[in-house]
Write a protein that binds this DNA or RNA. Structure first.
Lengths: 311, 311
DNA sequence: AGGTCATTTCGAAAAATATCTATGTTTTCA
DNA sequence: TGAAAACATAGATATTTTTCGAAATGACCT
């Protein structure tokens, strides 16, 4: 018998055995060298060398330069390495799915959120995660911080299974629940010209003339009736904060996030009553066949959120 | 040496060797039985049986019932099978990426389109595919027909690399080019009350009172000034066509698609001059790191489209 | 030139895998 | 009840894979 089997030497590698080579390759890259990878891989460096040769033969490409001059990836090696990480992600997800089938919560769960969620007093993310880990101790939790765009995209592409993000942009085919509303107020730094101006003098017109620092992903529409003059933008809160502290810009921050800076006198609220809006936040996960661990995490977060609209 | 390595028996399977088992499993499912899979797999039924046992031991779940009573998947087996198809898709994509690195166009390329694209005279999809295959003969082309929603979602999740769909809903992080405009006109079937009515008597008001069959994914807004009475919807053209032929509904179809039915007298245009609109169609693919084969296919389609706005 | 470091190559032994043939077991159907 | 179909199991064997130790290479430093 045995008609096909043997992988034709001219075809690209991939399949079965080769997967191990890819894992070895990735480990070598992480360890930055063959010798250093010995411990991680638990094999002699002679063996490692052999494996690398096999992989490079399959791919017909040199993946890394090595030797006395140091270890570094070639261009192709970099691409392959990236592709590997993607692939391993898929394999993780498969493993999670497998664990689901068997009934045990296991594998890897990727959670993504926008930044500045720690200081939020209503959302007890730490407690939620503790609770989740108690309930699903064998799940490896991957915690990532990114922009809403990246998050919703990653949710669709499977990079994230659960995501915490502002509400306006809910991706299709997902289940979402609004968790809380974040109060955003307008601030400026101590050295900003408006720092000493009385609230009553802060006309929309005056504010519209100031350099404004916004969130990169926000639409540049008028806010609270003011058509701000976007002169800077940052995708995250910390960036915005620094811009404001510089004294060159005014901009919005979540109240809880700005609180400490306000107390220390480095930041000031501008007409708190007039320039404020509520940003709704939601917890989102895939609608069809979300891993049970994903649902568990979402529930843990909802349960631990003080102001959650518990349906 | 050798500290970890060995997969702990209690952990879920996955890894290296097991991948082969999954492939075997999928083949068995496709063949609907062990004996039938012998030829496809090129191994004796005894061997196949052994493999299945191994897989089920790893997963600690019975995947299928077999025996004289017939072959069928258990619930778990069905889930695993689905997860497998996902996983194989990821592996295909990895292989494509690998081919890209080496410089040869290979692997699998998934193309998705809405239906009723064959009869479109401007778009020479057949020619485009022929040209693409000449240029990239080693690429396995997967051709799928689906709704715009599914298509744009699949584009983001990596299920499709290239997609042909109506223009309004372009997903983020993609490259798109409008290819052509499809002329949509209003039709009704031979047995419909309006079939004999003169065009001049077809007032918007009269049309608004007819039962209307629309496309599932279209927003239910007024079209050409008429607020149609949605009483049926289908996600594809063929469904819409049957609804119209039934004589119970009026509805829009692409002109080229309705042409044959109009000629045979089974369909009639309703006031062609007044009730018509142009639906723009676009070719879309991922913006960052699209496989080169994807770009090649997109270009082939653009090149072969008569009315393409060649930038 | 000599020494060192990182890797490569070689050859052989051990371990794991894959597969077959032949023979049971179970279930269905006549 | 018995034959046939579909699968399971056992034992034997061939093949592949993995790994290591030891020696070789080759660049770099002094």
């Amino acid at each position: 018998m045995k008609q096909n089997t043997k992988r034709s030497a001219d075809s690209v590698p991939l399949s079965d055995v080769d997967l191990r080579l890819l894992r070895i390759f990735a480990t070598i890259v992480n360890c930055n060298g063959f010798s250093a990878a010995q411990i991680s891989l638990g094999m002699s460096q002679a063996t490692i060398s052999t494996h690398m040769r096999h992989l490079e033969e399959r791919l017909r490409v040199r993946l890394c330069e090595r030797g006395r001059g140091g270890f570094f990836l070639t261009d192709e090696g970099q691409k392959v390495y990236n592709a590997c990480l993607d692939l391993f992600g898929s394999l993780d997800r498969f493993q999670t799915a497998m664990g689901d089938v068997v009934g045990e919560l296991g594998g890897v769960l990727s959670f993504g959120t926008v930044d500045a969620m720690v200081t939020n007093p209503a959302l007890n993310l730490d407690l939620a995660i503790a609770a989740f880990h108690r309930r699903a101790p064998r799940v490896t939790l991957e915690f990532d911080v990114a922009t809403p765009q990246i998050l919703s995209q990653g949710l669709l592409s499977g990079t994230y299974q659960v995501v915490l993000m502002p509400a306006p942009a809910r991706p299709v085919n997902t289940t979402a629940q609004v968790l809380f509303h974040e109060t955003q107020k307008l601030y400026c730094g101590r050295s900003h010209p408006l720092f000493g101006v009385a609230d009553t003098d802060l006309t929309p017109d005056l504010l519209a003339r100031q350099s404004f620092a916004g969130r990169t992903y926000m639409p540049r529409l008028p806010i609270c009736g003011v058509d701000f003059d976007w002169q800077a933008a940052s995708p995250h809160m910390e960036g915005t904060l620094i811009l404001l502290l510089s004294g060159a810009f005014i901009g919005f921050l979540p109240e809880h996030y700005a609180a400490t800076e306000v107390q220390s006198g480095r930041l000031r609220v501008l007409a708190a009553d007039r320039f404020t809006f509520e940003d709704p936040f939601q917890i989102v996960y895939a609608r069809q066949s979300p891993p049970r661990a994903a649902v568990a995490l979402a529930q843990a977060i909802i349960a631990n959120c003080a102001t959650a609209q518990n349906r």
